[in-house]
Design a protein around this nucleic acid. Sequence first.
DNA 1: TTCGATTAATTAGGAACCTAACTATATATG
DNA 2: CATATATAGTTAGGTTCCTAATTAATCGAA
Lengths: 181, 181
Amino acid sequence: MTKNSNFSNENNAVPSLLQSKQQIERYNLKVDAQAILVAARLMEAGSKLGQAAEIHFSRFGLSTGRYRLLADLEDQEGEALPSQLAEHLGVTRATVTGLIDILERDGLVSRRASSKDGRQKTVILTELGAKKMHDMAPEHFSRLEAMVSSLSIEERSIFLDLLDRVTNGISALTDGSGEAT
Amino acid sequence: MTKNSNFSNENNAVPSLLQSKQQIERYNLKVDAQAILVAARLMEAGSKLGQAAEIHFSRFGLSTGRYRLLADLEDQEGEALPSQLAEHLGVTRATVTGLIDILERDGLVSRRASSKDGRQKTVILTELGAKKMHDMAPEHFSRLEAMVSSLSIEERSIFLDLLDRVTNGISALTDGSGEAT
DNA sequence: TTCGATTAATTAGGAACCTAACTATATATG
DNA sequence: CATATATAGTTAGGTTCCTAATTAATCGAA
């Protein structure tokens, strides 16, 4: 028997349409079971992808968050403020502080006081950081590409469109009380 | 200016095709930028959905994991072993122990020693647990439905198909070393 | 039958991200 | 100008899930 990791088990964890139907019928609700299934599957996929990404990045001594910070720093030509990084990455400034702490400890970025504003600190991609990104790029991107390789070019467009619309709908979970439409 | 929560910012966090292209061209890789974009967007969506789900379930005094455990317990007619729950939820047994600890403390499930096997414990959905599920069902399901309400019935089918195929591709991130196809 | 290996659940400790409170600097207002 | 307010970054502490080690019970084989 193989090891009991989340990636070797016989994905009994995938939610089925039957499950959704039963859950809805249990309380006599007039909800579309397939809509619930879409939500459940997307949650499942997101969670699995998140875990897989952590494993992927750990090959390079990074985490998902730290990689994304380095990538954003590259996009900004090697220099950015922590608050900008936080906004770009969609995480809090507190989280960015933690990411920078480790990246700095590992020599991939460095902090420098801003001359313009004494409150700010500039985060800089070091040469070692740039080298790390360079070295991991081929494997990193080809693995990402392989992940979606079963979709045709056209299907990728469609998927992006549908995913975008569902993503916009996520606010239905967090909006103020009351029942949604 | 509104508060700087992840849900109120002007989603600058959404990865763009231009970004993907630049990242790839920086290292002269022959990878499809749109494929990378699909991967990036799915990661972003998964992370956002995960956070939104935690906010959603916290309205009912639950977390995503604890809700899913209760739901699975319902599917199993109110009774299951921790190891079964772990497999159904796709988490480790250690995690299930923690989920049960809190659910038991809150009176939503109870633990009972198994008579068949001295190592096993049976987890039981209490009346209070069943009531909790009953009470939250209408709002819970209608919010989930609202999330995907912008997709037609047909689009939901297509989305499920494409998502399923990408999900199967996730293993490309975790598979043994070397570059993928 | 008895002793080693397997299995079920738990415990201990770690990683990632969060909120809220704190420090230091900058800005606006009377 | 002095003082209140806002902003940048950090610190402190909490949540969720993980891996590895532990405890207790069962199974299998000499």
